[in-house]
Nucleic acid binder design. Structure first.
Lengths: 367, 367
DNA sequence: CCCTTCTTCTGGATCGATCAAGAAGAAAGT
DNA sequence: ACTTTCTTCTTGATCGATCCAGAAGAAGGG
């Protein structure tokens, strides 16, 4: 009758953990009653409950084992976020930080935890997703979306993908990147600019820096970079400027320093561009630094328009003209959709954007 | 023998999930063999394994249920972070973001997930901690440390507390706030300053803004604010200036805007302080804004020294003189201690800090 | 006094996996 | 030919809880 417990020996250290059954025995009640003392106070008399809890305390019983409870109830009390890049990047880029903030705020309201999955590379990412004890997933824009999508879909849990094609079988949250970019470019065209440089987000996430690989764009699944580029072109087309040479550089990792170098190259060409279209505010800041390096005045000699409207955008000098997008709300909306999934078909939410004109754009110098 | 399955009816919708047993039956093997196909490829022939996995795919079996696996193996594959403030704050404050980044980078190396617990208030925080399926905890400086500490300790898991007293029964990670602050103040004293204003982090986390509540300081468990204040005083004492009136304002939520207001008040007194000791860089930035509001030149009329050395510190104008502390490394070190707990006694790590002199401090104007 | 209802508590079944021990057959050593 | 070893696979027990149906006793209604 006496179960021997491995090599324990009662010595200070890893003794077997106290379970609900131990507690029940010690209190002279059934497991269910002990369980109810924690979960259903109305199911037993207050006096008994107090006694059970007291004995639990004495035994060092912290409460029902979370893993066992999850298994039995089928709920984890948390949602998972799958990142497309290293977590280090996720906690560095202001865009994803704001997104996480939005997710976190909704989690907090729901009393749920937020599980951030490690980035393990395309081959392994399925394992992490498969093994995550969560009630739903949020997929934050990534480069190998298919692998992630398949793994998440297999879990059959409420899921939302951000900045993903609406052809995916789950709900999506997005902005209209293309028309937002179009508006940014139209603003510059309206100011008389005719020579542009583009600083593009990386297309494949493979650490490449250099001229935009237009030929690779078709491969893409996660497409802000592509959509924004098309938006820029749309504006040119609409203005009858389709023949303009739109020189574009890809910048890896949304890095200010790389953007500075790329912008330096763009601005060293003759004739020099009078405006830079940056696909993110960080890239735009890099362009500002390059302008300083070259002794160019912004917006006198050069106009710069960004994208995102991160907090830094209005803190830099000159304050950035940029496309405001609701970063936090993206996260919040995604989380809400996970907690309260739409019945029937998945929902595809498109959040509004707005061009915010500040001090980094002005009339073209040669206009 | 046929178990009826609730009200399922096979209709499109929530059909019972496929289990390992279903897979085993469909493949004509035992549960264990099916399990091994996923977890121990070496335990069965490659041919059989391929067949099992194929059938799993066909059945839509995503892989072993994470909750069941956790229960059986006793491991969750993730560590939890307990915040002392709302998650919104955690994802806003550059200090905690950097900390999380450090934690995340180590998690990624270990292939583990990062579970961020919701802030539920002092009364409920125990529940969240009790119910978290994790392999260990990191406690990030909070205001009701006792409640958190008790709940975490009850879980009997490897845990690390940040900026917590070494009297706690778990490992701790910290910097020497007191001597770092002392160094910052000594720097100003060396420049001839004799009239100081202090911008203090909130002592109780209750949203209070106003004169520093020195009388409350004894109550504290989580003590950067108190230690830094003491450090400032230490420097004054060492210089024989113990009688100086060290006027201090508490600023709630480490907010730049609130700091600006508080600094405005400090700087409106006659005679005006010539230097401001800020307990964080955000507070210091608030002081810079107040200086601008008052038409004061920094460092000509006013010197400002911050604390933390967040990225913003060197981006603002003038660049902040501040105490550099290894924010990311704090998170990384904490995570490492959770993954590889010290045998025997808990470890108390104190990371080095360094005063970084930039452009926001200069000779006292009246010296 | 009997029947119903409510409160309080209990035991067995179950969630879905992994583990330990061992069986069956093939391969190898003597 | 017989024992040993290795490979491959299986059965029963177990992880620690929650859920369901029902029992025992108290309270209330006619």
């Amino acid at each position: 009758m006496e179960t021997s417990v491995g090599q324990d020996g009662q010595s200070d250290g890893s003794q077997r953990a106290v379970t609900l059954l131990d507690l029940a025995r010690a209190a002279g009640v059934s497991r269910t009653t002990a369980s109810n003392a924690f979960n259903r106070p109305d199911q037993l008399s207050p006096k008994l409950r107090a006694r059970v809890l007291e004995i639990a305390d004495k035994l060092g019983y912290a409460g029902p084992n979370p893993m066992a409870r999850m298994l039995r109830t089928g709920r984890a009390g948390s949602i998972g976020v799958v990142f497309g890049k290293s977590l280090t990047y996720g906690f560095t880029d202001p865009t994803s930080i704001a997104f996480l903030k939005g997710v976190a705020s909704v989690c907090e309201k729901e009393g749920a935890s937020l599980l951030i999955l490690p980035e393990t590379g395309e081959a392994q990412v399925g394992n992490a997703i498969q093994g995550a004890a969560v009630d739903g997933f949020i997929i934050y824009c990534m480069h190998y979306l298919t692998a992630v999508n398949d793994a998440v879909a297999a879990r059959q849990l409420p899921s939302v993908a951000v900045s993903a094609p609406e052809t995916m079988p789950m709900s999506t949250i997005d902005i209209d990147d293309r028309s937002a970019a179009r508006e940014a470019a139209a603003h510059l065209i309206g100011l008389g600019h005719r020579r542009f440089g583009v600083l593009a987000l990386d297309v494949l996430g493979d650490g490449y820096d250099g001229p935009l690989r237009i030929d690779q764009m078709a491969k893409l699944e996660c497409t802000p970079s592509v959509d924004r580029y098309r938006g820029y072109r749309d504006a040119l087309d609409a203005a009858g400027l389709q023949d303009i040479d739109l020189r574009a550089f890809e910048v890896s990792g949304n890095s200010e320093d790389q953007a500075r170098k790329a912008a330096f190259k763009l601005l060293s060409r003759k004739p020099r561009p009078t405006a830079i279209l940056a696909m993110s505010d960080r890239l735009a800041v890099g362009a500002l630094m390059a302008a300083t390096d070259l002794g160019l005045d912004v917006p006198g000699d050069l106009s710069v328009v960004g994208f995102d409207d991160i907090p830094l955008a209005k803190a830099v000098t000159p304050a950035l003209t940029t496309v405001h997008q609701p970063l936090e709300e993206k996260g919040a909306a995604a989380a809400r959709l996970v907690f309260h999934p739409p019945k029937g078909r998945p929902r595809h939410v498109v959040l509004p954007t707005e061009l915010v004109v500040r001090n980094s754009t002005g009339l073209a110098p040669d206009a």
